[in-house]
Amino acid sequence: MAKPNKKGPSKTVDIFCSQCKTQLFKYRKGGKGALVKCFIERISQDFTKQPCTCPHCERIFARETMIRGTPALKIIGGKVVHK
C-alpha cells in the first residue's frame, strides 16, 4: 500500500480527551470520517507529556503502531473527541 501524503491536508482539528476535555493535540486531518488513526508526522502541536496518555487524567487514549510503514497512533474508540 502507498504511504500517506507527507504534506497532508491544511485543515487542522483539535483533539480532546473525552473524559476531562483536555486538549491533546492539533492534527492535520483529511476527510470527514471518524478519527481512527493519527499519523505522527501530521500532528502539528502536541500537548501530551507521555505518548498516548492524557496529561490531566492519565487515561490511555491510543496505541503506538506502524500503519503502511509510517509511525501512527491507533485511537481507542470513544476515548477522544475532535472539533
Rank of each mutant, 00 (worst) to 15 (best):
residue 70 T to C: 14
residue 27 Y to D: 03
residue 63 R to V: 10
residue 5 N to G: 02
residue 81 V to E: 12
residue 48 T to W: 14
residue 2 A to H: 15
residue 17 C to P: 04
residue 30 G to V: 02
residue 5 N to M: 05
residue 26 K to D: 14
residue 56 H to C: 12
residue 53 T to W: 12
residue 66 M to F: 10
residue 3 K to A: 12
residue 78 G to A: 02
residue 80 V to T: 04
residue 80 V to E: 01
residue 53 T to A: 07
residue 36 V to I: 09
residue 43 I to E: 02
residue 41 E to N: 14
residue 28 R to K: 10
residue 64 E to Y: 06
residue 30 G to C: 02
residue 40 I to F: 05
residue 37 K to A: 14
residue 10 S to G: 02
residue 75 I to F: 00
residue 54 C to I: 05
residue 5 N to R: 05
residue 42 R to N: 15
residue 22 T to M: 08
residue 65 T to L: 13
residue 29 K to M: 08
residue 47 F to I: 00
residue 44 S to H: 03
residue 45 Q to N: 13
residue 73 L to H: 06
residue 61 F to R: 13
residue 51 P to W: 10
residue 4 P to Q: 03
residue 64 E to R: 12
residue 63 R to A: 10
residue 75 I to D: 01
residue 80 V to G: 02
residue 9 P to F: 05
residue 40 I to K: 13
residue 6 K to L: 11
residue 14 D to N: 02
residue 2 A to V: 13
residue 47 F to L: 07
residue 68 R to Y: 07
residue 68 R to W: 08
residue 47 F to M: 05
residue 74 K to N: 08
residue 70 T to L: 07
residue 2 A to S: 15
residue 55 P to G: 03
residue 18 S to N: 14
residue 26 K to F: 10
residue 41 E to T: 10
residue 44 S to K: 02
residue 18 S to Y: 06
residue 78 G to C: 04
residue 59 R to N: 03
residue 25 F to W: 12
residue 36 V to E: 11
residue 57 C to S: 04
residue 52 C to E: 04
residue 35 L to P: 08
residue 82 H to W: 15
residue 43 I to S: 01
residue 61 F to S: 09
residue 71 P to N: 03
residue 9 P to Q: 03
residue 68 R to I: 02
residue 60 I to F: 03
residue 55 P to F: 11
residue 44 S to L: 05
